[in-house]
């Protein structure tokens, strides 16, 4: 956690300073009392102090103190990455693919590829899930879900 905390500390510190800089461009005070930039600026300042504390604390920690890696097993990054990637792809193409097809494909990918379920179960769950959500959200709750170019 030591190295991870150091990196986090630096990233959050940079983020806080950017936030403070951004807040300075907003009016710090209005006609009466503090303005739009007031709270973000001070939150940024507070966050900067906190992240500096985290950084210092991590640096003061003895190196040998059983430093556990953030990802002890690098192979777990594959399913995590695949899930994040497929979700991004889903959101990107949902407008063109339409809800039913997109959701079916995402379910099938997550179940069949990421979780390595048997193909029969995968297809069954994917179809039931997409149709089920369509029924609940579109037919029962009246949400207008994205349609594909084919019109479903």
């Amino acid at each position: 956690m030591r190295r991870a905390d150091q990196v986090t500390g630096i990233i959050v510190l940079v983020f806080s300073l950017t936030l403070m800089e951004g807040s300075r461009r907003l009016p710090p005070s209005a006609t009466f009392g503090p303005g739009a930039g007031f709270l973000p600026f001070w939150l940024g300042a507070l966050m900067a102090v906190l992240s500096a504390l985290l950084l210092v604390k991590a640096c003061l920690q003895p190196v040998a103190s059983a430093d556990t890696a953030l990802f002890p097993n690098r192979r777990v990054l594959i399913p995590v990455g695949a899930t994040i990637g497929s979700l991004a792809a889903y959101i990107l193409v949902l407008d063109r693919l339409g809800f039913l097809l997109g959701t079916g494909l995402l379910t099938a990918f997550l179940l069949g590829v990421v979780e390595r379920e048997r193909w029969f179960t995968t297809v069954l769950v994917a179809v039931l899930n997409a149709v089920g959500l369509y029924v609940v959200f579109h037919l029962l709750l009246g949400v207008s879900l994205p349609k594909s170019v084919l019109g479903f």
Partner: peptide
């Protein structure tokens, strides 16, 4: 759980969209 996982992801996504 491996069956639940895709369901949680898709329900979340649709819910947020809705």
């Amino acid at each position: 759980y491996r069956i639940l996982m895709p369901l949680i992801v898709t329900i979340s996504a649709v819910g947020v969209f809705a």
